[in-house]
Nucleic acid binder design. Structure first.
Lengths: 322, 322
DNA sequence: TTGTAGGCGTTATCAA
DNA sequence: TTGATAACGCCTACAA
């Protein structure tokens, strides 16, 4: 029996008789034959693989997003390769190079905090590999992205804090290199002004996610003549660092200073002193949205590429009760 | 110019003139040519890929192990595909099937808590794909594994608790299906008896990692006529659940009950009420050891397979200061 | 020093 | 209904 007959039989090709199919399947099982997916993909010049690049697997926000991506990918017979950049632009470039080498069908990426250039991503698109930015987007509107609805998030947070009588609300802003940092900063500013609180630049401090810098910034904020009574942070891991700083250095302020940040992390449930509230970014849903959008590009057969779009995923405020 | 000349030029084959090489490399760069790794692997019938199967990415223990595996893999030009079983044997089987389909060169796996049969793993080995079990091993000595030195861990924990005047030390034992659960249980028993504390089976309770079951078990333990004053847990996530149970239901016991478990998780640093201590399993090193062992098998050219071995990774006790 | 040809496992096309 | 063949992109003998 020829290879082609076997191939057709296993793929349930209608041109093969039922009897032959049965015999083939039986033998295939007996001999534990498993088709070589790699060869198949090679032949089809399609890998049925999505590359997913994230800064760090220890960040639960991304893990939840991964789960969302994997769910959609699995439903559509795609695999997912997860790679960590460890917030290193160089490593990130290496990963992307590698993903191109392996001819993944598409890439979802949460860029590292230092990534500024778009060259690599243009290269991907040129190679015919669509890219979707997750959570952290470039400033370039030419790319697809799935992001938190930062504006709404800031309003939820500021509303909550104002209701709790806070007027001096500081913002621990993300690294300037990230477009998301500016979006959140702007959203914070708008939300404040809309509610009649004038924006005070001395209450805005850039952080780089390191403990030491957060400590410095907190020290500076508390040294102000009129220090903040509330913090709005770029992400909840910063909230946690800030909280620890307060516990260690200003324990008397622990009950007074309210903290709200982006990301409702599962680990918060274990804490005794929780941040006051968190923005639940629905990162699982963000993963789903990113993967769905990416697949739409991948499976777009027309000669025209789909126009780039930015999806704002709705979020909600979760108040933590300590 | 022929493809073979180009291929040789790019691979720096000595039979190609320097001039030709230069011209080829120049054009390759100009045209953004990136070799198709998939085709290369296909040709070599080698994927330079390791499969890494773990229960859950939200468990920081495994994330650290992943980092270890990735470090070794990267140094040896191998890629890593990470897949989550979500503690589901069926999903796990699917993943392994998929890894075989994709002809990975080797597999590292932390089996799900329900996995009992070895059939799948034998299938892998038969297919010529070596397997290394990580942390959670089967009872079968025919397979390679990298595990915590459970015996030493139990001694460290029990010594610590005894020094703190505890005599009634309960064990929250892992799921019976896991070989590791029995090893740790046995290590606990031995450590106790060696120190003149008789083993009391009423102080041993099996848990399945669910919050509800941990709650039930804790309730039962505290309802004993002579309840435990210390807990030795299968893993630190169980320690955290137990801690929460105590805070919510027996707050007066919070300061008295000592808890020690396997796994020194990064998230513990954020807690106010920490477990008393944790076994630092050095999971990063476990990942390194597993990957190194696996690569040794993969790169074993001899016709004889290497004998199976079990590596016990040294661990230490980390005392947490609340 | 360069080119030609064969093959890795699979599928699609076309012929038998 | 089945079989032979070419092709996917790359590498490697071997021939020129």
């Amino acid at each position: 029996m020829s290879v082609s007959t076997v191939s057709k039989a296993l793929n349930d090709n209608p041109s093969i008789s039922t009897l032959t199919k049965e015999r083939v399947v039986k033998l295939a099982n007996e001999w534990n034959y498993i088709p070589n997916e790699a060869a198949r993909h090679f032949k089809q010049s399609k890998s049925f693989t999505l590359g997913l690049v994230i800064p760090d697997l220890l960040d639960q926000f991304y893990v939840l997003a991964i789960n969302g991506v994997e769910a959609v990918a699995g439903d559509n017979k795609y695999q997912v390769i997860v790679a960590q950049s460890h917030e290193d632009t160089e490593k990130e470039a290496q990963i992307i190079q590698n993903l191109i080498s392996n001819r993944v069908d598409g890439v979802i990426i949460a860029i590292s905090k230092n990534t500024k250039t778009t060259a690599l991503f243009q290269r991907l698109e040129q190679t015919g590999i669509p890219v979707v930015f997750l959570s952290r987007s470039l400033n370039d509107p030419g790319f697809d992205s799935v992001v938190t609805d930062n504006k709404h998030a800031a309003e939820l947070a500021i509303d909550y804090l104002i209701k709790k009588q806070h007027r001096r609300i500081a913002h621990l802003m993300g690294p300037k290199a990230l477009g998301t940092s500016h979006l959140r900063h702007e959203a914070y500013r708008m939300a404040l002004e809309k509610r009649g609180i004038s924006y005070d630049p001395s209450l805005v401090k850039e952080i780089d996610f390191s403990v030491t810098q957060t400590d410095e910034v907190m020290e500076a904020l508390f040294a102000l003549p009129d220090p903040p009574t509330a913090l709005f942070t770029f992400k909840s891991y910063v909230s946690l660092d800030a909280l620890r700083f307060i516990k260690e250095n200003y324990p008397q302020k622990l009950q007074q200073v309210a903290i709200v940040g982006f990301g409702n992390l599962p680990l918060i449930q274990y804490l005794d002193h929780k941040p006051s509230a968190s923005i639940d970014e629905n990162s699982f849903d963000m993963g789903i949205a990113a993967a769905t959008l990416l697949l739409k590009h991948i499976e777009n057969e027309s000669d025209q590429p789909l126009p780039a779009s930015t999806l704002h995923i709705p979020c909600k405020l979760i108040v933590h009760h300590s």
